[in-house]
Design a protein around this nucleic acid. Structure first.
Lengths: 351, 351
DNA sequence: GTGAAAGCGCTAACAT
DNA sequence: ATGTTAGCGCTTTCAC
């Protein structure tokens, strides 16, 4: 189908040889008269010629094709933005993107990788749908780049979200609003996701920098779901009144939604009674909560771009650089306010 | 990168000609001794040979490559399932998938199509992220198939959700639970999305079949968002008590979430006071609502499979068939119960 | 300035 | 039962 018309047809119509056509159409700096150039271009246009990329790829040994392998996009609603970022830079640079979602099945991963190699892709991106360390297929080529993941044992260029800075931004924002007792509604997984640890690191750093005591009772955990957030919040609300937080920083927006539910069911108003901040800026949840949730956005689009740029060699990268940390912007909406007047700060704290 | 080793290397190592290698590796029914076959296979394995798909594609004029163009996956959280369906059948049949998301930009669509043709894809899928009539690019090849969309002017094989049946299933379920006054919280767009009209058609059909009067006051509209659902519900609650619905069927889950919010703020319990049913079975919303939302699922995965199967010629299809209607299963969760005892049925109705 | 010819890696007639 | 050869559509030296 498609390009039935070949370079030979163009040559015939323009009354020149196929090499001339090739030279002209590829703008080679050979001295071919402007006159013939024009004739060739016209002929190509007339018969609707467009070069067969497969033949070009075979000859040039460059297919202008890029592979993106991910563990799971189907089950991850916001993953699309990584793809969109990758796509945009691919398109702008004349590349087409092979996409495969492996469902994290090692066998499928390996098979997909072979297929892509067989298809002679010029570049490869190996993506995870949430920030984690991966154990890549053994046949992962050297030129691959990691997107939203990394590997210590099999290092490649890599981008991940700057989770520490994200945690810092969220908590600093709360501190700036006047909060002194800030809870962290964390995810309860073993081992904990990298993001959980790093966001908590940001939380701790801000406490330290602001000389705020850290109360272990304010670090609660639950499943990474609406219900997990709800249950974790119950623990917080079970604390004696003066030990309760005035603000809650959540591992993610889903849990934040659960925090909302728990708070509501106890008659607390958000943000006048308690402030809450999420993480992920997840579509269809963060902005649709009541009130709209202040949260930290995961830079999926930007990471997708970055990975593709280095994969394509547009962005310089020395293979041994540590993972690139992409900033996570704070998205301020309406779930944060100053603590209620007269709210407890912390036992013996400096108000 | 990749397959540096060619068929010639295998031939040399096995001490045969390259044609023999080709014959063997492609399992051609030519009589080559089992002995040499084995030798060739061994040689190939030894040096890690895998055929160059680009060269194969050029020669066979079949690339085992499939293009999927969509208007927008990045902004549509549940779209991934269509991709997943497409992917699965592609992989099972040895095809690789080129994916491009055009953001519904006509110029990009056209360009993407040309690129795919230039890449000599064997099949093409043109997908929309919500059920609608599209005006496809002028260069859409005849062999393309529509996924979750269709075109009257430029028909091709097409799959769309069976929205009428979905609307019927939802409303019948409500009727079976004992409801007689059922509202439809519709989307307020002009022109209305096809899905909106068809789901309403299902709603009406069930009313007719059950000899239930249709009260126009119960057909309210709002923006296709959480807030739109909330506002539409306010209209319902502003009705005189005995004219209010005992159940609400929503255009989609997002609006259903808004219905929950409005109901709650007026002190109604779901489902004991009012039942609600959504549409879409949207990830991270339907199942995470309190109580979990009974809804009608959009068969994204199945549609993705169907489209790919006909695109690949695995599933027979006569080009002129009307759009294939894919069933939308009812997902029953906990948002439906019988109406409260003594609830109004309808003025003059048969209870 | 332009054309002839070799060859990218593979398949498929056609020989033998 | 296996090898030779002619391309698939294109790019790129090298001649003229």
């Amino acid at each position: 189908m498609g390009a039935r018309v070949t370079i030979a047809d163009v040559a015939a119509r323009a009354g020149v040889s196929i090499s001339t056509v090739s030279l002209v159409l590829n703008n080679k700096p050979t001295r071919i008269s402007e006159e013939t150039r024009e004739r060739v271009r016209q002929a190509a246009q007339d018969i609707g010629y467009s070069p067969n990329k497969v033949a070009q790829g075979l000859r040039r040994r460059l297919t202008h094709t890029l592979g993106l392998i991910s563990d799971s996009i189907a089950t991850t609603p916001y993953a699309g933005q990584m793809l969109a970022g990758a796509q945009d830079v691919a398109r702008e640079n004349g590349y087409m993107l092979f996409f495969v979602d492996t469902g994290a099945d090692a066998e499928i991963e390996e098979q997909a990788l072979s297929q892509m190699q067989a298809q002679q892709v010029d570049a490869l991106i190996f993506a995870a749908m949430w920030h984690r360390e991966v154990t890549p297929p053994t046949n992962l080529p050297n030129k691959a780049v990691y997107l939203d993941c990394f590997s210590q044992t099999s290092p490649r260029p890599s981008v991940v979200p700057d989770e520490i800075a994200g945690g810092r931004a969220a908590v600093q924002y709360l501190v700036n609003a006047g909060h002194r007792r800030i809870a962290y509604v964390d995810v309860d997984e073993n081992p904990p996701p990298i993001a959980s640890k790093l966001r908590h690191r940001g939380y701790l750093a801000i406490h330290e920098e602001n000389h705020l005591p850290v109360d272990p009772a304010l670090h609660v955990k639950g499943a990474s779901t609406h219900d997990g957030g709800r249950q974790a919040t119950e623990k917080l609300l079970a604390l004696p009144k003066e030990e309760r937080p005035t603000a809650i920083f959540c591992f993610n927006d889903r849990m934040a939604a659960g925090v909302y539910t728990a708070l509501r069911s106890h008659g607390f108003e958000i943000p006048s009674d308690l402030s809450v901040v999420g993480y992920d800026d997840q579509q269809l949840v963060a902005a649709e909560l009541y009130p709209p949730l202040t949260t930290v956005a995961l830079p999926h689009y930007e990471m997708g771009k970055w990975a593709t740029e280095v994969a394509l060699g547009i962005r310089p990268h020395s293979g041994t650089d540590p993972p690139h940390l992409m900033p996570c912007p704070l998205i301020t909406r309406e779930s944060v306010a100053p603590p209620p007047v007269g709210a407890p700060t912390h036992p013996g704290g400096e108000a």
